[in-house]
Nucleic acid binder design. Structure first.
Lengths: 196, 196
DNA sequence: TATAAAAACTAATAAGCATTAGTTTTGCTA
DNA sequence: TAGCAAAACTAATGCTTATTAGTTTTTATA
C-alpha cells in the first residue's frame, strides 16, 4: 500500500494558501470565491477540498501565521539587553520587512481578520491586543528611562504601527525606490520627526 | 395633487446612507446584506429601493462624500499664506477631526473603496492619487524652504496619512482619553519624533 | 504489472443574494 | 373627507455561493 506523502501534500496545501492570500487581498475575503481560487490553483473548486478543510480555515491559517510571526519576534526582542530606542527600532524594521517580504499575508491579516469565525476571531483580537500592550510597555520603559519624550505611549504605539501598515500603499512603487532607503527614512521620521 | 417632499425624502435617504456606513464598516461591503440594512432602518429590504438606487450607489455616495470633503479642505489650505509646517499641521488636524467626527464614513471610504464599480473605482483612485500628489508638493515645498528635513517626501506623506488612519483603532478607547490631547500628541510625534 | 491511495472530476444540494413586479397601506393636501 | 402620491408590503426571479457525495483518473510503489 502506498504511503501518505506529507511533503507533497503540504506543498500543494501551501500553494492553495498562498494563492488564497493573493486572492483575499485583491478581492476581499467575502468577494473571493472558491471557484476563483480553484482557477488560480489550476483545478476545479471541489478538488480544493481534498487539501483544505474550508474557506474559513484558509483565512485562519493566514491570520495566525502572521500573528505568530510578530509575537515570536517580540519574544526575542524582550530577551535582549539593548536600550529602549534600539529595541523599538529593531521592531519597526521587522514590521517593515514583514510588509515587504510577506505582503499578501500581512495585508490579509490586517484587513480581513474581521471575517474569522469564533473562537478564532476572539483569539486573534486577544493576541493582537496583547502584542500592543507589550509594545506599550516597551514605550513606557523608554519614557521612564528618558530615552523617549513624554508622550502618551498608546498614541505612540498606534502611530508607529499604523505608519508601518501604510507601506501597503507603497507596494505599487516598490521598484522605483530603494527598500533600504525607504526603511531608513521611515524609521528616522518616526524617531526624530519631520521638522528640523 | 400632493407635491414631492424633497426634505423628508432626502432625510430618509440620509438615514439609510448613515446606517449603511455603520453596517459596511462592521461587516464589510460584501458581507453586509440589504436585509440587514433594512432591519437597521426598520423596513423590509425591497422598501429600501423606494429611496435608493442600489447597494453600489450607497457605497459610491459614502466614498465620494468623504473624498470630496478632503479635497475641498486641501483647496482652502493651498490658498492661504501660512508657512509649510503650519499648513501641514492644519491638514493633519483636519484628518484627525474627520476620523473622530465621521468615523463610519471615513472608515468605509478607506476600507471598502475596492468594491466600487467602474467608472467610480477609477475616479476614486484618481482623486486619491491627486490628493496625495498635492500633499507631496506641499512637503517638497517645505523641504525646499528649509522647514522640513531632507526626507523622501513620498515616504513622509504616506507615513502621515497612515498614522492618522490608525485612529480607527482608537475609537474603542475614545471615552477614556481627551481628544485634544490625543490630537496634540500625534501632531507632535509626526512633526518632532519620539526620541528626545 | 498489480494494487491502492491521492487527487482530480461531475453532479447535486441547499441556502443566500440583490433586485423587480405588482399590490396595499399610509399620510398629506385641497 | 376625497383623492393622490409616497412608501410600505408580499411574492417571485434568477443568479451565485460553499460544500458534499459519488465516481474516475492519475501516480507511485511493491
Amino acid at each position: 500500500m502506498a504511503k501518505i506523502k506529507p511533503g507533497k501534500n503540504a506543498s500543494k496545501k501551501d500553494v492553495i494558501s498562498q494563492k488564497a492570500a493573493a486572492l483575499f487581498k485583491s478581492k476581499g475575503f467575502s468577494s473571493a470565491s472558491m471557484r476563483e481560487l480553484a482557477e488560480a490553483v489550476g483545478v476545479e473548486a471541489p478538488s480544493l477540498y481534498n487539501h483544505i478543510g474550508s474557506k474559513s480555515e484558509l483565512l485562519q491559517g493566514i491570520c495566525f501565521k502572521v500573528a505568530n510571526a510578530f509575537t515570536l519576534y517580540l519574544d526575542t526582542t524582550e530577551n535582549n539587553t539593548d536600550n529602549h530606542a534600539t529595541r523599538l527600532e529593531h521592531i519597526i524594521r521587522f514590521h517593515i520587512s514583514m510588509m515587504l517580504d510577506h505582503f499578501d499575508e500581512v495585508y490579509v491579516a490586517n484587513h480581513e481578520w474581521k471575517h474569522l469565525k469564533e473562537p478564532y476571531l476572539s483569539n486573534f483580537l486577544m493576541q493582537r491586543r496583547g502584542y500592543e500592550k507589550r509594545l506599550i510597555g516597551l514605550m513606557e520603559g523608554g519614557i521612564g528611562a528618558g530615552d523617549f519624550k513624554l508622550i502618551n505611549p498608546y498614541v505612540a504605539v498606534l502611530t508607529i504601527l499604523s505608519a508601518v501598515r501604510g507601506l501597503e500603499f507603497w507596494q505599487q512603487h516598490k521598484k522605483n525606490i530603494n527598500s533600504q532607503a525607504l526603511e531608513d527614512d521611515m524609521v528616522n521620521l518616526l524617531l526624530k520627526g519631520i521638522t528640523k
